[in-house]
């Protein structure tokens, strides 16, 4: 009597269900199903599911697959080779040089002596100060006079403006005193000029 394994049962299951097996094999399949719980369960569960699964259309491999793979392998090969010393060094030196030149240019333009810090070509607000100017308009009523040596010569109608903050001094009769930027100075002066404190 012919005996079959679970593997053979499943492999020949399609033919068995179609009835295309010869009588001897058919009998072997039936006997095996009687004795084997796994194959009984298999038969129940797969009456037609396995047939359908085996007949699923294959996913086509795209024609570009092999060429893409070759390209990736070439890239892999090139990546694993160590580049020549100059092919690594030259781009780095170029980048470093460009950065250095740019930094030099910016510092040259922005920090030229006698110029306001800022972007060249942009107009500054209502005042321009510099050692080269002898007389600059601050305000239609008030004028700032700076001598060539850079020392401030103030008259009654003149005022010093902080060029960084563009703050004008408070009108507290202190026109002739240069106003520092330091906030502590303000606190001291405010305290000393308050009527209650006096």
């Amino acid at each position: 009597m012919k005996k079959i394994t679970c593997e053979s049962y499943e492999r020949g299951f399609l033919e068995f269900t179609k009835g295309t097996l010869d009588p001897e094999h058919r009998k072997a399949f039936e006997d095996h199903r009687e004795q084997c719980e796994h194959c009984r369960n298999f038969s129940k569960a797969t009456s037609d599911v396995r047939v359908a699964l085996s007949q699923l259309p294959a996913i086509e491999t795209p024609p570009y697959f092999t060429s893409n793979l070759k390209r990736e392998i070439n890239r892999l090969e090139q990546g694993s080779k160590k580049p020549e010393w100059n092919s690594r060094l030259i781009p780095r030196l170029l980048a470093l040089g460009t950065g250095f030149a740019l930094a030099l240019f910016i510092s040259f333009v922005a920090l030229q002596p006698g110029q306001q810090p800022g972007i060249p070509g942009m107009e500054q607000p209502d005042m321009v100060a510099g050692s080269g100017a002898s007389e600059e308009t601050v305000n239609p009523d008030k004028k700032l006079t700076i001598d060539r040596g850079g020392e401030l010569l103030l008259t009654e109608n003149e005022v010093v403006v902080d060029t960084m903050t563009h703050r004008l001094p408070e009108p507290a009769g202190m026109d002739s005193i240069p106003i520092p930027v330091d906030d502590d100075y303000w606190k001291i002066n405010q305290v000393s000029t308050t009527p209650e404190d006096n």
Binding site: H38, N41, F42, K44, A45
Partner: peptide, 9 residues
Amino acid sequence: VNRGRTQIQ
């Protein structure tokens, strides 16, 4: 395999 097929069925 059997349980998977049963579920599909």
